[in-house]
C-alpha cells in the first residue's frame, strides 16, 4: 500500500509537471523556433541535475524518435558543429515529423543539464529512440561509414521514398 501511494504521487507529480512544461516545444526542421524557455520555473537550481530537470530532459528526449540538442535552431544554427549535425540529418532524409530540436542557448538549465544527463561534455547531442548516439564527431563519422543510414532505416524515421525515387529517378 505504501509503495502504491508513492507511485500514484509520482504519477500525479509527473502529470502536473507536464502541464507546467507545456511551453516546451520542440523545433521542427521546417519551422522557426518558438522563443520558449525550457525550464522557466526552475531558474534557481543551477549546479546539480535535479529530479525536475532530469524529468524535463526525459520528456524532451522522448518527444520525438530523433532528437537533437543543439546551439541555435535547424534554420539558424549558432555553432558549426550543430550546423554540421543538422546538415547530416537533412542529407540522411530524416522525416521532419519524427524529429525535434532543442536550442540549449535558450535555457541555461538545459544547456548544463543535458551535459550531465548524457555524461557528455559538448553540444550538439543526438538521441535516437531515447538512446544517446553521440556528438558531432560521431554523427559525422557514422554518416560517412554508413552506420547512421542503417540505424535511421532500422528505426523507420526516414522520409518515405516514392516510386522510382528509390533508384534516384525523378517521378513525374
Amino acid at each position: 500500500m505504501f509503495s502504491r501511494t508513492i507511485i500514484s504521487r509520482a504519477v500525479r507529480q509527473t502529470a502536473a509537471r507536464s502541464s507546467a512544461f507545456a511551453a516546451v516545444r520542440p523545433t521542427p526542421l521546417s519551422t522557426p523556433a518558438p522563443a520558449t524557455s525550457f525550464l522557466l520555473s526552475l531558474a534557481s537550481q543551477r549546479r546539480l541535475l535535479s529530479d525536475a530537470v532530469r524529468q524535463a530532459i526525459d520528456k524532451a528526449v522522448a518527444s520525438a524518435p530523433v532528437v537533437l540538442f543543439m546551439k541555435g535552431t535547424p534554420e539558424t544554427p549558432q555553432c558549426g558543429f550543430s550546423r554540421a549535425s543538422i546538415q547530416v540529418l537533412g542529407l540522411q532524409g530524416v522525416d521532419p515529423n519524427k524529429f525535434a530540436a532543442f536550442n540549449v542557448l535558450e535555457d541555461q538549465e538545459l544547456r548544463q543539464g543535458i551535459k550531465e544527463y548524457s555524461d557528455w561534455p559538448t553540444i550538439p547531442q543526438l538521441y535516437i529512440d531515447k538512446e544517446f548516439v553521440g556528438g558531432c564527431d560521431i554523427i559525422v563519422s557514422m554518416h560517412q561509414n554508413g552506420e547512421l543510414a542503417k540505424l535511421l532505416e532500422e528505426k523507420g524515421v526516414l522520409l518515405k521514398e516514392e516510386g522510382g525515387q528509390a533508384e534516384g529517378e525523378t517521378k513525374e
Binding site: K71, P77, Q78, C79, G80, F81, S82, C136, V140
Partner: peptide
C-alpha cells in the same frame, strides 16, 4: 567537420 577552414565558428 563542423569548422570553417579548420576554425570553430559561432557560439
Amino acid at each position: 567537420d563542423g569548422t570553417e577552414g579548420g576554425k570553430v565558428t559561432g557560439v
